[in-house]
């Protein structure tokens, strides 16, 4: 399996596709940095988390967190959509499978290599912003900020892995590259994109008026889970993910939550995200293992 990961990684890093994605990430980081520079003055003073503002503060140009929420699914899909069917159509899949390796190491290797690539991209973007941001604002990050950002990073990788898993699943199910690219993209447009999300803005409001039910429905969308989780992680002032009535909020002190309290707040969301990712991978795994190799 190590060999397959090694080869897949080498493939990714020499491919034009990855170069484009990296460029996209760099441009997004630069833009987010610019946005933070414009907007960071005066924010974060009440919570004391100035450094994290680099990732969350945006104005006309969105913040890095917004960019990441938008880009990560696309990166995941781009990395995964041709994982299996491309190898099948070029005939390399049969060649690999006739070697003395377990069949699942092919799909495990591909999934892990994709996750590593994804992690490197996100890590690079965050380091870029952190590094330049540090020069810009001159405020070093507190220990808690580093931990929060790291958990955020893990959440992002899991979120990306979900979309990659989805794309890999379609690449196993369909032989055509176009179909396996369009299917996850369509799902992303319908329930996963943060800019214009028909599921969030039309479907759920149309189905129910109750806030409780609509929240439940919204949480089917991996995007919504991710948005809630990261909001609480990156903003210590963020209080509740459910319904807060006026009586709840009156007298509430506007003081940042401690890390463990924030974590308790997002734990269900994080677990659900991990679950979705695991389900996606498990389905891909089972389908791939059961798929027959046929003489065509």
């Amino acid at each position: 399996m190590i060999t397959i990961i090694r080869k897949e990684l080498a493939d990714y890093f020499t491919s034009i596709r990855c170069l484009i994605l990296f460029l996209l990430v760099v441009v997004a980081s630069a833009a987010a940095l610019y946005a933070a520079q414009q907007g960071i003055r005066g924010t974060g003073t009440e919570s004391g988390f100035i450094f994290m503002g680099l990732f969350t503060v945006g104005g006309a140009i969105p913040s890095l967190a917004t960019f990441i929420a938008l880009l990560v699914p696309v990166i995941g899909i781009a990395l995964g959509f041709d994982a299996i069917n491309n190898e099948r159509s070029t005939g390399t899949l049969n060649r690999i499978l006739s070697q003395p390796i377990y069949r699942d190491s092919v799909i495990n290797g591909k999934f892990l290599a994709g996750m590593i690539t994804l992690a490197i991209m996100i890590f690079a973007a965050m380091l870029l912003v952190a590094g330049y941001g540090l020069r810009m604002i001159g405020v070093p990050p507190a220990a808690e900020e580093i931990i929060r950002l790291f958990i955020y990073f893990v959440a992002v990788v899991i979120y990306g892995a979900f979309w990659m898993g989805l794309a890999i699943l379609f690449s196993i199910l369909f032989r055509s590259l176009a179909v396996s690219l369009l299917c996850p993209l369509a799902i992303w447009i319908l329930i996963g994109n943060p800019v214009f999300n028909p599921y969030v803005s039309f479907v759920v409001p149309a189905v129910t008026d109750s806030i409780g039910t609509s929240l439940m429905l919204l949480r089917i969308s991996p995007y919504w889970l991710f948005a809630e989780a990261t909001a609480a992680l990156l903003d210590p002032l963020f209080r509740g993910l459910g319904i807060l009535t006026v009586s709840d909020t009156t007298g509430m002190l506007l003081r940042p939550l401690s890390l463990d309290q924030s974590l308790i707040l997002v734990w269900p969301q994080l677990t659900a995200l991990i679950c979705l990712t695991v389900i996606c991978f498990a389905v891909s795994y089972v389908v791939f293992m059961r798929q027959e190799i046929r003489a065509t």
Binding site: K7, T90, G91, L93
Partner: peptide, 22 residues
């Protein structure tokens, strides 16, 4: 196989090396 496939972007040696590693 009848329809054999190689990783087109890799060299002959790299293709063989991958199989040797596997």
């Amino acid at each position: 196989p009848e329809r054999l496939g190689f990783y087109e972007n890799l060299t002959a040696r790299q293709n063989l090396r991958f199989i040797a590693w596997l």
